[in-house]
Simulated assay, not measured.
Amino acid sequence: MKTLVIYTHPNQQSLSYAFLQEVIRGCKENAKIEEVKVLDLYEEGFNPVLIFNENKRRRDMHADPDLAKYRDQLRWADKIVFVYPIWWGRPPAMLLGYIDQMFASGFAYKETGGLFPEGLLKGKSVVCISSMKGPTHYPFIWLNNAHKTLMRKALFNFVGIKKVKFFEFGSMESPRGRHKEKLNKIYRYFITVDQ
């Protein structure tokens, strides 16, 4: 199983970075994971800004040469892991800009003329690991589960990815946030995951 980890946080002293390290550690100790690649969007200097003009058309985004290496990473991966904070009830703008550009028509899905497109990323699985300042159940109670609905239904299911697992950790700025326990939960998941 080839695993691509997409990390989105500007601070490498953050709790998100600690979660990233546990993902990597667990993957390296899992015999079923043959290789792990990490894409740190901030360190990479990824440009999240969409540009459409007479030279860059939206319908050609699936073949944009500036994004070729990122498409290759997504094609290569069997499992895609996203590690990011929840800010204002949703992933960071940097990650959303990556999603806008990478999950393009012609690459991640194709129109069929029917109600739903054909997802072109079938067979892959996704894990989303997110942390937030508010309580764990805040997105579910106050935001009608908007984060999970956005990621699972509006994005991953749309492009053919049906196996999606979430780890949403709340109260992460509290001294009672049980950080070690949550970090260990991520490590234990990745050391045993088999698909």
Rank of each mutant, 00 (worst) to 15 (best):
G134A: 15
H147A: 09
P92I: 00
H179G: 05
S130R: 01
T149E: 12
D64N: 14
Q12N: 15
K180T: 13
I51T: 13
M102A: 04
L41H: 05
D60I: 07
V38F: 10
Y70G: 00
M1K: 03
K122A: 10
L115S: 14
G114Q: 07
A31Y: 07
E35H: 15
H62F: 14
E54M: 13
K133W: 11
L15H: 13
F169V: 08
V81K: 00
F107R: 03
V81P: 02
K162V: 08
T112C: 13
Q195I: 00
P139Y: 00
D72V: 02
G97H: 02
G134D: 11
F46P: 03
K163Y: 02
N157V: 04
A68S: 14
C27A: 11
S125F: 01
S16A: 14
V83G: 06
G114K: 13
N157H: 13
K2H: 10
T3K: 01
L41K: 03
N11M: 14
I86P: 01
T136Y: 06
A146W: 04
K185C: 09
P92D: 00
A146E: 10
M1Q: 04
E35D: 14
G114F: 04
F103Q: 01
F166R: 02
Q13A: 15
V126N: 00
P175I: 11
L121M: 10
S125M: 06
